[in-house]
């Protein structure tokens, strides 16, 4: 009788409380903290045989080999730049997803900010020019307007003059 009870209790424990028996899973790698470094470095490196993937993301055999190589080198205490240099020595700059800064990549790195500079300068110059071209609070003068209408009519076979965009636009601005 008692043994049956115990048996039932044990059974209940077994069925209803599996976590009590479960053990903590182990990490795939011995040192998960170090693996973070390995992953961070692997994400900078291109898998050469893949379409366009980092060796961290790829399961291709070469990517796995290179990732193991990275892990070995991290284990032996080499720095990220050592490891990247090692890879570049063997596979060229192609292997780096972060291109090095040198004469041939200067434009790549500086380009976006150069573009920004050009964009801002063009913007400011244009805005300043506008404010001097468009005088007396608003639109073109009557004469200018007429001349432009004539020009537009002459330029285009379409009935631009009848259309009268400038005048309607002017009306709009007065209201707003």
């Amino acid at each position: 009788m008692n043994s049956l009870k115990i048996g039932i209790v044990l059974l209940c424990l077994f069925v209803f409380a599996p976590p009590a028996f479960a053990k903590e899973a182990e990490y795939m790698v011995a040192d998960p903290e170090m693996e973070k470094t390995v992953n961070a470095i692997s994400e900078e490196l291109r898998c050469l045989v893949c379409q366009n993937q980092t060796i961290a993301d790829s399961n291709a055999p070469l990517a796995v080999d290179l990732k193991n190589q990275v892990r070995d080198m991290v284990e032996s205490g080499q720095s990220q730049s050592d490891i990247i240099d090692y890879m570049v020595e063997r596979y060229g700059d192609f292997v780096r997803y972060r291109p090095p800064m040198n004469t041939s990549t200067m434009l790549l790195w500086v380009g976006p900010f150069l573009l920004l500079l050009i964009g801002v300068v063009v913007l400011v110059v244009n805005l300043r020019k506008r404010t001097t071209v468009i005088k007396n609070d608003g639109d073109l003068s009557v004469e200018e307007n007429e001349r432009l209408q004539r020009l537009l009519a002459a330029e285009s076979s379409a009935p631009a003059a009848k259309h009268g965009n400038l005048s309607s636009q002017k009306a709009g601005e007065e209201k707003s």
Partner: peptide, 11 residues
Amino acid sequence: GKVGIDYGVYG
């Protein structure tokens, strides 16, 4: 494949 890596073999 270690020598392969040293020679930059990728295929």
